[in-house]
């Protein structure tokens, strides 16, 4: 109901359009400039060089692993934050969201002091024979650290706008909390979860600062695509630009997926998180 009225009114003042155009240009212009700067005849060889492919494959694998970790830990966190009621809840939320606003290099330093060789947990892990520093695990940890808030924010928003009515009904019908979660809550917020996971994946793919600080840079082990770009820029600007474009393309695809993702579940627009989407619940 609400949505229909929104779409009927399209009275955007023209000066807003003008400023919006400037804003859009501000984002698009640098990207266009980069596309112009690409050495097209060399593009394929540059992008398919062994170093590039090694970095791309490492990036995709680590980002996928980070996304899995984000879902694993992010879903319970979002549930606790959206549905729980306990002292310190707001504080917990602030801390979970902190990596969103922290400079990644700060995240890297923090991770170093937690999981590094001399770190809080790292020392114990070292004794146990587990070494995280300079390993692919370190890359995954860095990426999970920065990407987790994206999943929590998306999912918590979805949980809040979905409301708790259906869960309450299910509970009164005798469903146990785990059953409610599995049969009612998760199907209800699946679109939000999906877009959160895609965003986490995208953020993991772009992670640079924390990885550089915490994991190091070794081909095939810790040198992800952003680190490879940073290094190539030193000697081969063409390679750096070509790889940047590759990362832009991957990012555009991923973000495109995340915005289309919720649509089929909702009734057309991206507002799948509105209670209206509950229509899919009826079997």
């Amino acid at each position: 109901m609400n949505r229909r009225r929104d779409s009927a009114y399209s009275g955007i003042p023209r000066w807003v359009l003008a400023i919006a155009a400037v804003g859009a240009l501000f984002v698009l212009l640098p990207l266009a400039a980069m596309v112009v700067r690409v050495n097209w005849p060399q593009f394929i060889p540059l992008v398919t060089s062994e170093a590039s492919l090694t970095a791309l494959s490492l990036s995709l694998r680590t980002a996928a692993a980070s996304t899995v970790l984000c879902v694993l830990f992010g879903v319970p966190l979002a549930l606790v934050l959206a549905r729980g009621d306990f002292p310190g809840q707001r504080l917990l939320r602030s801390f979970v969201l902190l990596p969103l606003v922290l400079p990644p290099v700060v995240g890297g330093i923090a991770l170093l002091y937690a999981f590094g060789r001399q770190g809080l947990l790292g020392r114990g892990l070292e004794v146990a024979g587990i070494q995280i520093a300079f390993s692919t695990t370190a890359v995954v940890l860095a990426q999970t650290f920065v990407a987790l808030p994206f999943l929590v924010v998306s999912l918590e928003g979805a949980l809040r706008s979905a409301g708790g009515r259906y869960e309450a009904v299910a509970a009164t019908l005798g469903a146990r909390p785990t059953t409610v979660l599995r049969r009612v809550t998760l199907p209800l917020v699946l679109p939000g979860l999906a877009s959160g996971a895609v965003l986490s994946f995208a953020r993991s793919l772009g992670e640079f600062g924390a990885t550089l600080t915490f994991a190091g840079s070794l081909p095939g082990v810790t040198r992800t695509l952003p680190l490879e770009i940073y290094l190539q820029r030193e000697t081969d600007a063409d390679a750096a630009v070509a790889l940047s474009l590759l990362l832009v393309v991957v990012a555009v695809i991923v973000v495109g997926l995340s915005y289309r993702g919720p649509a089929p579940a909702g009734s057309g627009s991206g507002s799948a998180r509105s209670p209206g989407s509950s229509g899919r619940l009826s079997p």
Partner: peptide
Amino acid sequence: VSEESSVTD
């Protein structure tokens, strides 16, 4: 174990 992009790193 790592090839950094700057001597500071």
